[in-house]
């Protein structure tokens, strides 16, 4: 019946082959099918959008307040913000010294934090607002595991200055979350937006009043 399509439209009782569909594309028919296709696309949006974060998920990302007096010198605490682990470290002067050690800097992949992994106010050698307190998103930029906090020198390998070691694929970061070269992780650990409410209270999830509108949506990689 392949000849069917090439017949001429007829009338009355002419046989099927003669009634065959016209090859002429009628404007109304094309318009009808086109509108229907547009409608189908319009319906697809609400269906797909339902998979985006719902209002309760977005609201659960509300800021979290942390009392820094809970963090002993040289220690780290982990809090959950937007379902992500946030590292808060109280860095002693000795630990801070490692960050400016030329030996450390020469091994880093991005020592000056040029990739947008942190807000403006943390784009400095210590990657924080105050040098003493480090705030990081504790998710390896390689494939999303949680790096272990290893502040003791030589604890990971001989010559280790203290930093983060990811148990999954061996990525290494220093004590400001800067990634070393030669490991699978491509970027420094991200710094979330945060601000000081008082000398000992920080709020994670809000920029300082003059700190711009940084958000984690704009970082290269979490």
């Amino acid at each position: 019946m392949a000849d069917l399509a090439h017949g001429k439209p007829g009338a009355g009782t002419v046989p099927l082959a003669d009634h065959a569909p016209t090859t002429r594309r009628d404007f109304l028919t094309v318009a009808g099918y086109a509108i229907a296709a547009v409608g189908a696309v319009c319906v697809a949006w609400p269906i797909l959008d339902s998979m985006n974060p719902a209002a309760d998920v977005l609201a659960a990302g509300a800021p979290v307040d942390i009392d820094l007096s809970r963090v002993q010198p040289g220690q780290q605490i982990v809090v959950l913000w937007r379902s992500r682990p946030i590292f808060v470290v109280n860095r002693t002067p000795e630990l801070l010294k490692t960050l400016q050690d030329p030996r450390d800097i020469s091994l880093l992949s991005d020592p000056n934090s040029t990739a947008p992994q942190q807000p403006e106010y943390a784009t400095n050698w210590h990657r924080s607002i105050q040098p003493q307190y480090l705030v990081l998103v504790g998710i390896c930029t390689h494939l999303g595991c949680i790096p272990s906090f290893m502040p003791q020198p030589n604890s990971v390998s001989p010559g280790w200055l203290g930093g983060y070691f990811c148990p999954c694929h061996g990525s290494r970061y220093d004590l400001s979350g800067r990634v070393y070269s030669g490991v699978p992780a491509p970027y420094n650990l991200p710094v979330p937006p945060y601000r000081f409410l008082s000398k000992t209270m920080i709020r994670i999830g809000e920029n300082p009043p003059d700190g711009g509108d940084f958000s984690l949506e704009s970082v290269e990689q979490i």
Partner: peptide, 29 residues
Amino acid sequence: FLAMQYTPHVDYAFSSVERLMRDVNYGWL
């Protein structure tokens, strides 16, 4: 797509359906 939002548990089924009606984008639709 509804099943992605629904919780089949007697304690959560009713409220997960209402969450769908309120919080999920176009969940009501």
